[in-house]
Structures are given as structure tokens and as C-alpha cells.
């Protein structure tokens, strides 16, 4: 009886797992076979890499990759600097107006940047940042979520270390840099993984703010490449899709444990 339920558990779990990765497996299969073999599900048809070649030649993918890479880097650097400074101020300093400002920051958690697209677009244009990578990244840099995360991390640092560094003659920024930042490394790593995968995958805002292949990230490039007007077939779209998700997917498969831990840490706070 016990072994039967165990078997049923394994069976159900694996069945669901197969259903869950089926879209990826089909895409992989379609991308490595000719279109007619792919749609007819010819199991014994020959493998090919032609679809990847055609897809790669069909759009400036290298440029898109570089843009996405620059975008996530710019956002991450901005977020690290801004949330470290603000998180430290909220965690360890006493100053008038602190609680009020903190509530304002928390409010931003619920005003998603996604819903403010109209006015943020106007603002980015006014600042002359339309169709620049900085313009895509700027609205995300002062992340309320990041400030909150860093505040929690810094609050956990024992005050004795702070005092010891001060007695040694360290200034406030010195203490932040030498005591707090090194101790918050796991939080930084978690935040980096969440931030990079969020912005690697972000679509709506980059779609609005970019207007040329010079700045367009992968997601926007992929949506334009796959648009029905372009008339590319399913095998080539699959190849392009796999190409654009490959770096993040491979990183995830290698550092799976860290990814899951990062999302957990970032979610549960």
C-alpha cells in the first residue's frame, strides 16, 4: 500500500514535470529540425542547425545581446549604489522625517513602474533619454524593493562591529563600505540574481522607450522578429527564442540552488 502511494506520487510528479517542460522541449525539437518535419512530428527526421543560422542572420542579435547585457549592468550598478546608500540611512541613522520618507518608499512598492508607463515615457522624453539604454534603466534604479531589502540586511549587522570600526577612526562611509557592505554579500548576490533575471526578461517598458536596433533589448527584438508580418516560420521562431533565452537558462541550470535561494530571500524578506 505504502509503495503504491509512493509510486503514484512519483508518477504524478514526473508527469506534471514533463507537461511543464514540454513547451521548451517542443521548441528545442522544432528548432533543430526542418519546418515540415517539425510540424509533422517526424520523429526520425534528420537534425539540423540551419534554423539557428537563418534566425541569426534575420536580425541584429549580437547588438540585442549587447544591449540587454548593458541594460542589466547599468540597472544593477545603479540599484546597488542607490539602495546601499538609502538602505543604510534607513537602517542605521536617525534623522527627522525618516519614518515619513520610509512610508513613501514603501508606497512605491505598490505603484508598479509598469502602470505609470504614460507619464514615465513623457518624463524620459523630457530628460532627453528617449531611445537610450539609460532611459530604459533609470526608472528601476531607485527600487523601493531594493531599499527595503538592504535596510533589512543592514539592520542585522551587530552594532558592536559598527562601534569597533568607529573607535578605530573609520568615518561613516568607511564603516558602510568596510563593515556593512561585506557582511551583506549574500543579500547583494540574491538581489543581483533577481534583478538581472527580471530585467533580462522585461518587455513592456523597453518596448515603449526604445525605437531603434541600437538600443533595443533582446525581448523587444524577439517580439519584432517573431511578428506575423515578418512571416517567419515556427522552426525559425523557436530557434530565435531558444537563442535569446539561452544565456539566462544555462546560468539558471548551473546555479539553480543560488537562483532559488535568491528568489526566496528576495520574496520573503
Amino acid at each position: 500500500m505504502k509503495s503504491l502511494t509512493k509510486f503514484m506520487d512519483s508518477f504524478g510528479a514526473i508527469l506534471l514535470a514533463i507537461i511543464w517542460i514540454a513547451p521548451l522541449l517542443f521548441a528545442f525539437w522544432a528548432a533543430t529540425h526542418s519546418t515540415s518535419d517539425a510540424v509533422n512530428l517526424n520523429l526520425f527526421s534528420p537534425w539540423t542547425l540551419d534554423n539557428f543560422r537563418v534566425a541569426w542572420d534575420g536580425a541584429p542579435w549580437l547588438k540585442y545581446f549587447i544591449n540587454t547585457f548593458l541594460l542589466v549592468t547599468v540597472i544593477l550598478i545603479g540599484q546597488f549604489v542607490l539602495t546601499t546608500l538609502a538602505g543604510f540611512a534607513f537602517a542605521q541613522l536617525q534623522f527627522p522625517g525618516k519614518d515619513f520618507v520610509f512610508i513613501l518608499v514603501l508606497m512605491q512598492l505598490f505603484i508598479l513602474p509598469e502602470v505609470l508607463i504614460v507619464e514615465n515615457y513623457a518624463m524620459v522624453s523630457r530628460l532627453g533619454l528617449f531611445d537610450t539604454i539609460l532611459g530604459v534603466g533609470m526608472p528601476y534604479m531607485a527600487s523601493a524593493f531594493g531599499i527595503f531589502l538592504m535596510r533589512q540586511a543592514f539592520k542585522g549587522v551587530p552594532i558592536e562591529l559598527h562601534e569597533a570600526a568607529r573607535i578605530e577612526g573609520c568615518g561613516l562611509l568607511g564603516i558602510l563600505w568596510r563593515v556593512y557592505v561585506p557582511l551583506a554579500k549574500p543579500t547583494y548576490l540574491a538581489y543581483a540574481l533577481v534583478s538581472v533575471s527580471t530585467h533580462w526578461n522585461n518587455f513592456l517598458w523597453p518596448l515603449i522607450v526604445t525605437n531603434s536596433p541600437e538600443t533595443r533589448p533582446l525581448t523587444v527584438g524577439l517580439s519584432i522578429f517573431g511578428a506575423p508580418e515578418n512571416g517567419v516560420d515556427i522552426s525559425i521562431i523557436s530557434a530565435a527564442t531558444l537563442m535569446s533565452v539561452a544565456p539566462l537558462l544555462i546560468a539558471f541550470l548551473i546555479f539553480q540552488r543560488q537562483f532559488v535561494q535568491a528568489f526566496l530571500r528576495a520574496g520573503i524578506k
Binding site: 509512493k6 506520487d9 512519483s10 510528479a13 514526473i14 506534471l16 514535470a17 514533463i18 511543464w20 517542460i21 513547451p23 521548451l24 517542443f26 521548441a27 533575471s197 533580462w200 526578461n201 522585461n202 518587455f203 533582446l218 525581448t219 524577439l222 517580439s223 517573431g226 521562431i237 523557436s238 530565435a240 527564442t241 535569446s244 533565452v245 539566462l248 537558462l249 539558471f252 541550470l253 539553480q256 537562483f259 532559488v260 528568489f263
Partner: peptide, 25 residues
């Protein structure tokens, strides 16, 4: 259960894909 590692990976993988890629799939 058996194949627990595979099962966990399979469940979590869609999370790291962009919505645009998911739509293409």
C-alpha cells in the same frame, strides 16, 4: 520521490524565461 531534482528543475524553469519567449513557445 524518484527524480526529485529533475522534477524541481522542470517546475521552476518557466520562471526564468521572459514572457515573450514563453508566448513564442
Amino acid at each position: 520521490i524518484s527524480a526529485r531534482g529533475f522534477v524541481r528543475t522542470a517546475y521552476f524553469t518557466p520562471t526564468v524565461l521572459p514572457m515573450i519567449a514563453a508566448a513564442n513557445l
